[in-house]
Structures are given as structure tokens and as C-alpha cells.
């Protein structure tokens, strides 16, 4: 292994790499935000919605959760780029968002249902309306409960973003392949890519645990 030559090549490739990493982070980040919002809607529908609403959302959820994320990505890409002329980025973002929302929705639903019934009753007993009860009593507790799973979902999303390379989104994996095509050092550049993914996921987990500690209730 020729280190000096490799570092020279690495330096040449730095812009491409930074762009690739940026794309990975950006698309994962947007997908997490949108997916979480959508996921909250899913959870609310499943816990508080009417029978029809629950049925429809449940079908959607089971469908998405039973489908591999790669299939979601390919399906969104082929369907949406053909019909509505979406770019790979947009199609991939939609796929990741939907994927994220299914996980967030299921986790939040579980967290809400795990709350003791007495909490809702105590809120009712002091005269809180349903909305007030949800915002001030139930949600803070459910969100704390769902936090570890949410952190996990965020890491999964970053890992799933690698599959977007297949539909042509220039994130880190595709960037790495492009760089190797010009500067054939597969082992070294893949190592760099692996290191980056490791650092991102590891940091997410670390950050997550720090947040968990911060919002944990004293006991």
C-alpha cells in the first residue's frame, strides 16, 4: 500500500468526496425530518383515528414495513421518474421519507399505547381537553420513550441512503465508485467511505445517548 500516493489521490478527490458526504447527510437529514413528521401523523391516526382511518393507515404501514427499503427506492424511482418526471434525488427522498415514517409511526404508536391509562385519566380529572392532554401529558412521555428507537431509525436511514447510488443519486457510495473509476484504489477509497459511514452512524448513536441522558427524568 502506497500511502503517499494514496493521500495525494485523496487530496485530488477531496471535493467529490465532500460533495458525496454532503449529499448523504442532506438526503438523510431531510428524510428524517419529513419522515418523522409523517410518522407522527401515522401514529396519531393509529391511536386516535376512526375505524376507517386506522384501517387505511394500518394497511399502508404493513405494506411499507413488509417491503425492503431497496424495493421502495426502486419502485419510487421507476414509478415517479417516469410518470411525474421526478429526479432520482426526489424519488429517493420520497422513498426514504416513507420508509422513515413507517418506523417512526410504529414506534410512536407503541410508546403512546404503553403509557398507563391512569395518565390520560389524571389529565381528564383535572379538566384537560383531549388536545391539552395529548400535548402536555401524553406526548412528552411518549417521545421520551420512543427516543432510542428514533435514534436507531436515523442511523438506519443513513445506511439506507447508500442504496440511492443504484438509482443514480451521487451520494458517498456512488461518489466512491466514480473516484475509483478514475483513480483505481478500491481498497483505500472504500476504506475511507466505510470510515465515514462508521463515524456518522457512531456519532448519531452517541448523540442520541447524550440527548437521552439530558431529557431523562430524575429519579
Amino acid at each position: 500500500m502506497d500511502f503517499t500516493r494514496f493521500f495525494a489521490d485523496l487530496w485530488i478527490a477531496r471535493f467529490a468526496l465532500v460533495e458525496g458526504i454532503g449529499m448523504t447527510l442532506v438526503i438523510s437529514g431531510i428524510a428524517i425530518v419529513l419522515g418523522t413528521l409523517l410518522g407522527i401523523g401515522v401514529a396519531l391516526s393509529l391511536v386516535y383515528g376512526g375505524r376507517l382511518q386506522r384501517f387505511v393507515v394500518r394497511i399502508f404501514l404493513e405494506y411499507v414495513r413488509g417491503t425492503p427499503v431497496f424495493v421502495l427506492i426502486l419502485a419510487c424511482y421507476y414509478l415517479l421518474s417516469g410518470v411525474i418526471q421526478l429526479t432520482p434525488f426526489q424519488a429517493g427522498l420520497i422513498a426514504l421519507t416513507v420508509f422513515c415514517s413507517s418506523h417512526v409511526g410504529e414506534n410512536l404508536r407503541g410508546a403512546l399505547l404503553a403509557l398507563p391509562k391512569g395518565q390520560t385519566e389524571a389529565g381528564k380529572a383535572i379538566g384537560l381537553t383531549f388536545c391539552q392532554n395529548f400535548i402536555y401529558v401524553l406526548a412528552p412521555q411518549a417521545l421520551r420513550q420512543a427516543l432510542p428507537a428514533w435514534i436507531n431509525t436515523a442511523a438506519e436511514l443513513v445506511k439506507a441512503s447508500t442504496l440511492l447510488a443504484v438509482i443514480g443519486v451521487v451520494e458517498l457510495m456512488l461518489t466512491t465508485r466514480q473516484i475509483i473509476a478514475i483513480k483505481p484504489r478500491p481498497l483505500e477509497f472504500y476504506f475511507v467511505a466505510g470510515l465515514v459511514y462508521f463515524l456518522i452512524c457512531f456519532s448519531i448513536e452517541r448523540l442520541g445517548r447524550a440527548v437521552e441522558r439530558r431529557v431523562a427524568l430524575p429519579s
Binding site: 398507563p116 391512569g118 395518565q119 385519566e121 389524571a122 389529565g123 402536555y136 401529558v137 412521555q141
Partner: peptide, 8 residues
């Protein structure tokens, strides 16, 4: 309540 049900 019997189970107190304080908001934790």
C-alpha cells in the same frame, strides 16, 4: 387515584 397517576 389509587395509583397516584402523577405526571412523571
Amino acid at each position: 387515584f389509587q395509583q397516584f397517576n402523577l405526571f412523571p
